[in-house]
Nucleic acid binder design. Structure first.
Length: 214
DNA sequence: AGCCAGGCCAAGC
DNA sequence: GCTTGGCATGGC
């Protein structure tokens, strides 16, 4: 599959879903903090649950580096509980906040983020792309599932290999990286689920796997 | 009433 | 290096 194919898929998704304008940002909060915390909270978790946790954080006025640094891990667990995996996530947020306070935003690198326990490649790239405007394509479960079903590449490729494919086949730019990933999530949520809903899928004609419930 | 969600890590090959 | 199990809530 070549560049035209990746662009064709992008355009079809864009035509169908329209611009997604990710990342969802909340009122009166520092976008960097909100996006970073959201990226940690949404690990293997539906965004609806994450929203509940973020609402709690906003209500407690906690979307702030100093306040997150001050609150105890135990209390933070309670606040973010609806997002699930709250023990680990609270620990990760605490470490993130602690480390981030001692560094300038311009100095935040992928390796720096990956050194934080509980932040892996996808979370790091989400923060880099959506919170720091750096050109890292985000690879998630939907990306693997959708493009392997399309027949573009094998689902078993590593994270870095898949990311490299997107970096090579798309014009470099944060806007297209942001929008493409958001559109992939839209397709994954609405059509290309674990159990796919192929009827009405905007990529039906492009897909090698259009064998389900049609 | 199960199954699933915008992963990550540790342990064991 | 790759695979597996644990982590947890709430929506559908």
């Amino acid at each position: 599959m070549g560049k035209e194919d990746f662009i064709r898929v992008y355009n079809k998704l864009l035509d169908f879903f329209g611009y997604q304008n990710w990342w969802p940002v909340h009122n009166n909060t520092d976008p960097f903090i909100g996006i970073s915390i959201g990226a940690i909270l949404t690990q293997n978790t539906s965004w609806k649950n994450v929203e509940k946790a973020i609402e709690n954080l906003i209500r407690e006025d906690l979307l702030d580096l100093e306040k997150l640094d001050k609150i105890s891990q135990e209390n933070l667990q309670k606040v973010i509980k609806p997002a699930g995996f709250y023990v680990r996530k609270a620990k990760t947020i605490k470490e993130f906040v602690k480390k981030i306070k001692n560094i300038k935003k311009e100095e935040i690198t992928r390796d720096f983020l990956l050194s934080i326990h509980g932040i892996g490649k996808e979370t790091a790239d989400s923060i880099l792309l959506y919170a720091l405007d750096k050109p890292y394509f985000v690879v998630d479960a939907y990306t693997k599932r959708i493009f392997s079903r399309l027949g573009f590449f094998d689902e078993k490729l590593s994270y870095n290999q898949i990311q490299e494919i997107f970096h090579k086949n798309l014009p470099v730019g944060i806007e297209i990286y942001k929008e493409y990933h958001a559109l992939i999530v839209a397709l994954g949520k609405n059509f290309c689920k674990r159990k796919p809903v192929c009827t009405g899928c905007p990529l039906f004609d492009n897909c090698k796997f259009r064998i389900y419930n049609v």
